[in-house]
Amino acid sequence: MTDSATTSATTGGSTGDDTTLRVLSTSDLAGLEISLADVIATVEGAYRTLHAGASDNPRKLTVTPEDGHSVSYAMLGRDGSRDVVAVKTSYKHGLDKGRAEQHYYTTLTLYDDVSGLPVAMMDCARVGSLRTPAVSALLARECVAPGARSALVIGTGTQGRLALPFLLTALPQFDRLLLAGSHPAGIAAVRQELRAHFPDREVELVTDLRTAAGDADVILATAGGHTRAAVEAGWLRPGALTILVGHGLAPSTLHRADRIVATSEAQMRVTGTDMADAAGRLPAVDTELPAVIAGITAGRRSPRERIFAYNSGLVVTDIALGHRFAQLAIAEGRGERVSLWR
Rank of each mutant, 00 (worst) to 15 (best):
S182D: 06
S90V: 08
R269I: 02
C124R: 12
G313T: 11
L179T: 01
R126F: 06
A151S: 06
G224I: 02
L130I: 05
I187N: 07
L171Q: 03
E288S: 09
I219P: 13
V23G: 10
Y105W: 11
D96I: 02
Y310N: 04
E193W: 03
G160Y: 12
P133W: 01
V153W: 03
L152P: 11
I293D: 12
S72W: 08
T169S: 15
R191Y: 01
L130Q: 14
D274M: 14
F166M: 13
T273Q: 15
V153K: 04
D217K: 05
R324G: 04
L314E: 00
V63R: 15
S302G: 00
R334I: 05
P303M: 00
R210H: 12
H93V: 09
D67M: 08
A5T: 14
A188T: 13
A309E: 00
F166C: 09
T7R: 15
R149W: 01
A41I: 09
L61M: 08
L178I: 00
S302A: 01
T107G: 13
T287N: 08
R191D: 12
L194F: 04
T207C: 02
R82G: 04
G53N: 12
P165N: 07
Q267K: 06
V218L: 07
T64Y: 06
D258R: 05
A100I: 10
P238D: 02
T64I: 03
E204Y: 06
S312A: 13
F166K: 14
T211Q: 12
G155S: 07
I307K: 01
A216H: 11
V23S: 14
T64W: 06
P303H: 00
A326H: 14
G225T: 14
A229G: 06
T271E: 15
P238W: 00
G12Y: 07
G239N: 01
C124D: 15
G160F: 12
V190C: 11
T49E: 10
D18L: 13
T10K: 10
D67V: 08
G214S: 07
A216I: 10
H247T: 10
A189Q: 11
L171I: 05
A266C: 05
T317R: 05
P199G: 04
R304K: 07
